[in-house]
Design a protein around this nucleic acid. Sequence first.
DNA 1: AAGAACACCAACCGCTATGGA
DNA 2: CTCCATAGCGGTTGGTGTTCT
Length: 349
Amino acid sequence: MGRPPCCDKIGVKKGPWTPEEDIILVSYIQQHGPGNWRAVPSNTGLLRCSKSCRLRWTNYLRPGIKRGNFTEHEEKMIIHLQALLGNRWAAIASYLPQRTDNDIKNYWNTHLRKKLKKLQGNDENSNQEGIRSSSQSNVSKGQWERRLQTDIHMAKKALCEALSLDKSDSPPNNPIPQPVQSSCTYASSAENISRLLQNWMKNSPKSSQFSQSNSECTTQSSFNNLSIGQGSSSSPSEGTISATTPEGFDPLFSFNSSNTDMLADESNAFTPENARIFQVESKPDLPNLNAENGFLFQEESKPSLESEVPLTLLEKWLFDDAINAPAQENLMGLGIGMGMTLGDASDLF
DNA sequence: AAGAACACCAACCGCTATGGA
DNA sequence: CTCCATAGCGGTTGGTGTTCT
């Protein structure tokens, strides 16, 4: 029997995604969750193949993705991990949950590789050319060993987790760094779309093709007022984005004036912080974003502190930072037990 | 000012592994 | 067991913006 082909490549659109397509895709995923990508083009009316939809989601629209400049810390980690793992970008990305493998790969190819080459050129007499050259010199052995060690370690970890589910929170003094499990909150993908739209509006001031009741409402200002989770319960008069589809799923994005105070200022619109607060605030009445329709709130498994007591932006920022810090420290000790020290990578700078 | 060269990065391509029919 | 869709991955390409000449 077999299944029908993924996409027949006829009438399949290629090239950059438009904000409209992004909105349709995110809206659909918020309702149905990621997966079953084959159904996405037909259900949304997107003229994209399923693979393109999946890649767009994983590389760009997925929540929690950090874009923009890499920090020095991230650079060092990438260099270190690349030396350990080679060009296994997905594995490297698992240690930098806010970055996609594509992003890391691009950054490596465009920045870090040159940087390392330059450093090696400037330091050719040094025995610290280090990780790269030394690992390259016996690449067949060293890399294989490291990969093997990494794989063994990952297998061990998986086994441990399987055997002790109740100990899912690894002890703080765990000497073995673990890939960071990124939390997945689809709501905050609006942040990504907002960012996209802001860039888009910057680059292309022409009006979007959203059908809007208010003709003065530009795409950007609309998204500054974006409210998540109001779904079909929101008043149509407030300007629901028209994203008609064959199945007519309800777009989840609507413009709600109740939140414009926080988001009215363009500079304040949908930063990661306020996006998350926004999400928390809109949790209690989320008719469309619940487990029943596939919307996953993995962050809800965290202590309910955040949802009970809204934090200020600064408090949240500090709170998030405190959470992330141990993981980063842990990651920086990655080489321990893998035949490598962080110093090896740090020496490159 | 104009065009060439370069840099960047989103998206695509092709391959492999996996799992369901 | 075989076939095929799907997911995931790494390499590559092409469009666009920036810098250089």
